[in-house]
Amino acid sequence: MKQKDKTLLIDRYISGKLEDTELWEFKTNIEKDASLAREVKIRKEIYNTISNDKKMELLKILSNISAKKQTRFFKINIHSRQVQAFAASVIVLMIIGGGLLSNYIGYGNSSNYDVYTEYFIDEGSLLSTRSDVKASNSLVESGVLLYSDDKYTEAISLFDSNPENVVARLYSGFSYMKLQQFDMAEQQFEYIINHNDNIFIDQAEWNLGLSYLASNKIKQAVKIFTKIVSGNGAYSSQAANIMKELENK
């Protein structure tokens, strides 16, 4: 059975959409092939887990508990706005000053850019098929494939022709990050965040924070990573780790 067919067949089997003959054949295959049976079981359990929105929410809360503990030192119980602003300034100055001092005395081997490169996830690494650009129907998809082929400038020109498409904006941001044009990357992620009606906001916030970090805009980076940590989203534990690294620099 081809891998492509197998994936589809498993989904159709799980959702009860196989025709009688297909079903009989698939069940026979499951009986013969232990690894297929195992994959079907795992996929079924995965779908059950992921489609249970309420339970997923609890799992997110639980997974963020330990991340939150690490950043509690940032959440001193201060009620006055002036004192809050002062405290925030002190934290930023400590981070910047600490970084400058450690660089000066020779201990600052790990720059903010290093932290950025450690945490930046290349979305294109998941795209293994790179020669099908002609087969694609949309400019956005062509842009994504160009991005995965490391042709960032060409990809950006396609994304620019779809300024209202959030996927184009997202991959445009990634492309600018790859080109180390972080100011331009920030504009793309800010658009997605301000757009506010799409599924990529957490990803945009995370990469906006990384762009700030790469260009040494520590105050903005701390602000957005603090927001990510408190938001219980997908990147909160990684954001907490970055905050900890900034604190230790």
Binding site: Q3, T7, L126, S138, E141
Partner: peptide, 16 residues
């Protein structure tokens, strides 16, 4: 998601 069906099909398989 703003993708073509062909791309979505491939991407879905990679993700799974």
């Amino acid at each position: 998601m703003g993708f073509s069906v062909t791309y979505t099909y491939r991407k879905r398989q990679q993700c799974l």
